[in-house]
Every structure is written in structure tokens, then in C-alpha cells.
Design a binder for these strands. Structure first.
Length: 427
DNA sequence: CTATAACTCTCAA
DNA sequence: CTAACGTTGAGAGTTATAG
């Protein structure tokens, strides 16, 4: 029987901000989504004040000022770098692991003796704290779903857990009592739609869900929920995915910092997204067979001034060349553009992805990118990797970029940019 | 009719 | 001064369409 450990960083984004700016220690801190839109992370102090997740910043700002809450724009360069460091540490504690998200990883704990698991996890926790200054919680269980749930218990310090919770350490009755106290919505895979429906039919706790009839749930809801129930019962249905699979589609979209009205700015923004999407495409060694562009006005715009447009174009032959993609995207943007609307967001989707180097060459397949194109794109990516994203780019992206997202409260890139290092001045 | 494509819904971080 | 509310990806299930 397998054993999974789920490692999850506590208040990850907010902790990163506090780590590099000592003035923020002990202070309520919130981190905002792209465009400084809404609150996506809260420090322990901010949670204690009852700051809700997802609150739009413009609604929170005044109360935040009164309570001395400090806000930061999200700084993905910083978080991604810290995330990689965390993964390096935990790889030393478990050779088989899956990076599940920027702040969570699953570890295979199968080869560790049951009695050792908690102490091993505690040592990992201590190492991350000591080396990186970040605090993590670890949940251990016989399925991914149970490991996630154990992690929840570790975080909430349920059942005497202090940062580590191994369900195997609990007696059957203690586990039953614990699961009876946890709302069903905490289960991985039970979201805001499913939870109320389950509650309405008397399945309010995790224990209720575990003890429900899987066959009936499969018929009434979905096979996904059935699988979740089996996982809650301790039979593992979801494996560890150590190899990150190549993406089946690559989407780049952003809300603008301010509303955009003119076609040329839209084309620039779309070109910018194409450049980033194509970079991601080449990084995973794929070619795109389809390109789509989306333009839209504000989400809460009333009907007559509301507009959402998508257009797509097949790419024959499939390509990863930013130039080809940019030209195609410009056409689509022009086709979509309707004057008079206040555009809030643009996006680009690459789909129908295929591998650039198929194992078995297809006799009838269209030829891939020309050697010239490949060399040029390699040079482009090489220069941008060395000197920073956007160092070399097509003129189509524009230079003023007035549509760039708002990040008024951005912290320095402490770990990935020399200019972000705090200066210590000798007195 | 079936097989597939296209689209919608849900979930997660 | 005002108005303002994230992004990306996966998978299942449903509906439309082609043959």
C-alpha cells in the first residue's frame, strides 16, 4: 500500500514577502492578484484579523489602512524562485516526488518505515525552516486525497497535530471523530458547487462522504466523486506524477492596467502574449496547430457595452515561430476589434499541440519549422534567458505598453535580480 | 445510428 | 478625481454535427 506525504508552504506568497522585508514580520500582510485585483494570500496576522480570501482590493483598501494591513502586488519571479528552493530541499528527503503547484508537492513515503514517517516529516519541516526561513505543513496518508486532508489537519492543528499529521498514527475511532468534525467542502475535489449539494442530502462532513455509497454517488454526481470516496477510504486511485506532462494547450491572458480603446494597443498586447505563449511552447518542445485570440470588456460591464470575442485560426504547418504566430494573431485581433468598447482583457491560446520531434517521423506530416526559424528562435530564447525576459522582442509588442498590468505595490526581485538586493550601507 | 468535435461546467492553486 | 473584482490548466460530461 502506498503512502503519500503532502508538503504545503504556509501562507506562501505572504511568507515570501515577510521573509525578505523584516518590517513586515509580525504585521498583517496581504498579497494581491495580477493587476492588484483581489487578495490571493494572507499572512497569519491578516488571517487573524479575518481578512477574507478573494476580496477585491478596492473594497478592502480603506479597512486595510485602518488596521495597518500592508498589501503587496504579486511578485511571481520571487515566489517561483523560492518554490524551486523548497523543492530542492524536499528532493533530499524523498527521491520520488511530484510538484503539484507553486507551493505544494506530493512525496512518496512508501519506503519509510511507518514508525519513522512523522519524524522524517518533522525533520524535513525543520530543514526548510532553517535553510529557507519558510514554514511548511505536512500531511501523510495512504492516498493523495487523504494526504491532502491530513495536511489540512496539520495546518489547523487538529488532533494534536503540530505541523505534521500522519493519519496512520490515529486509532480508528480517533480518525472517525476527526473526520466527523471536518466539513465536506475541505475535501480535495469538492468545490463550492458540490459542497452545498452534498450537504443538502445530509453529507455534511468528510466522514459522511467517506461512508456514502460510491456507486450511488457515481450515478448521481460523477465518477470523479466516486474516486474521491475510494481515496477517502484509503485505496489509492491517483498516482504520483513525477514527470510534468507537456501542456495540451497554452493560454496567456492579462487584464489591462487601464481600459484600452484602440486597435493598435490591443495588437501590441496580443503580440506580447503571443511572445510569452510561444516561449512556453518552445520550452516544452511543442508546435501549435491552432491559434486563438480573445478580446473582452470588463467582467461586470452591463449588456450594451459588454463584448467578448474569440477567433481562431488553424496553423498549417504547425509552428513555434513567434513571427508566424504574431502575424496570425494580428489578423485575428483585427477581425475581432469593434470600435467603441472599453477593452479590459486580451488573451492568446495555443492548442492542437504536437511534439516537435516525434519519435516516429510521419511520412505524410507537413514539415516542421525551417532550420533558419529554429536557429532564430533559439537565439531569441537564449538572449532572453541570459539578459531577462523581453530583452529581445518583436517591434509588434510596442514600446510604451500602456496596457501593462497594474503592480503598484511590487516588492523587489530579491533573489533573481541584482538590483533587487537590499543595499547595506556602511555608516 | 455511432464517433467525434465542440462546448460547458467544475475544480484547483 | 473615479472606478475598480486573477490566471492557467485539466478532465468529465453534454450537445452538436458528420458520415
Amino acid at each position: 500500500m502506498p503512502t503519500f506525504a503532502l508538503v504545503d508552504c504556509n501562507n506562501f506568497f505572504a511568507s515570501c514577502e515577510q521573509l525578505f522585508d523584516p518590517r513586515l514580520r509580525g504585521v498583517p500582510v496581504v498579497v494581491l492578484s495580477n493587476n492588484d485585483g483581489c487578495i490571493v494570500a494572507r499572512s497569519a496576522e491578516a488571517k487573524a484579523l479575518g481578512v477574507p480570501m478573494g476580496l477585491p482590493w478596492f473594497k478592502a483598501r480603506e479597512a486595510a489602512r485602518r488596521h495597518g494591513i500592508v498589501a503587496r502586488s504579486s511578485n511571481y519571479a520571487l515566489y517561483a524562485d523560492m518554490s524551486n528552493r523548497v523543492v530542492e530541499v524536499l528532493a533530499n528527503f524523498a527521491p520520488d516526488y511530484e510538484v503539484y503547484s507553486i507551493d505544494e508537492s506530493f512525496l512518496a513515503f512508501d519506503s519509510i518505515a511507518p514508525a519513522e514517517r512523522s519524524t522524517h516529516a518533522a525533520a524535513l519541516r525543520e530543514r526548510v525552516r532553517h535553510w529557507l526561513g519558510l514554514s511548511v505543513c505536512i500531511g501523510i496518508g495512504p492516498s493523495k486525497t487523504l494526504a491532502k486532508l491530513a495536511n489540512h489537519c496539520a495546518k489547523k492543528q487538529l488532533a494534536g497535530a503540530d505541523g505534521v499529521c500522519d493519519f496512520a498514527d490515529l486509532s480508528r475511532t480517533a480518525l472517525d471523530a476527526l473526520l466527523a468534525r471536518i466539513p465536506v467542502g475541505e475535501v480535495w475535489g469538492v468545490g463550492r458547487r458540490l459542497a452545498p449539494r452534498l450537504e443538502a442530502e445530509g453529507i455534511g462532513s468528510v466522514r459522511d462522504l467517506r461512508d456514502a455509497d460510491p456507486g450511488r454517488l457515481a450515478r448521481r454526481y460523477s465518477v470523479v466523486l466516486e474516486r474521491t470516496v475510494r481515496e477517502l477510504r484509503g485505496s489509492s486511485c491517483l498516482q504520483l506524477d513525477e514527470m510534468a506532462q507537456a501542456r495540451q494547450q497554452i493560454l496567456r491572458s492579462r487584464s489591462f492596467g487601464t481600459r484600452i480603446y484602440d486597435l493598435s494597443s490591443l495588437r501590441e498586447a496580443v503580440s506580447h502574449h503571443v511572445a510569452h505563449a510561444a516561449e512556453a511552447l518552445r520550452r516544452q518542445g511543442s508546435l501549435a496547430g491552432m491559434l486563438a485570440v480573445c478580446l473582452r470588456t470588463g467582467m461586470h460591464e452591463p449588456d450594451p457595452s459588454r463584448y467578448i470575442g474569440h477567433q481562431s485560426l488553424p496553423l498549417c504547418p504547425p509552428t513555434d515561430d513567434t513571427r508566424t504566430l504574431t502575424v496570425a494573431a494580428a489578423h485575428l485581433t483585427q477581425r475581432l476589434y469593434r470600435p467603441g468598447y472599453a477593452y479590459a482583457k486580451a488573451g492568446v491560446l495555443l492548442s492542437d499541440l504536437t511534439a516537435r520531434h516525434p519519435l516516429q517521423a510521419d511520412l505524410f506530416a507537413a514539415p516542421g519549422p525551417s532550420p533558419d526559424s529554429q536557429r532564430l528562435m533559439q537565439a531569441l530564447d537564449g538572449i532572453n534567458a541570459r539578459w531577462g525576459r523581453g530583452t529581445l522582442r518583436l517591434a509588434a509588442e510596442g514600446t510604451t505598453q500602456g496596457w501593462q498590468m497594474k503592480r503598484a505595490l511590487l516588492s523587489p526581485r530579491y533573489t533573481t535580480d541584482w538590483a533587487g538586493l537590499p543595499v547595506v550601507r556602511a555608516v
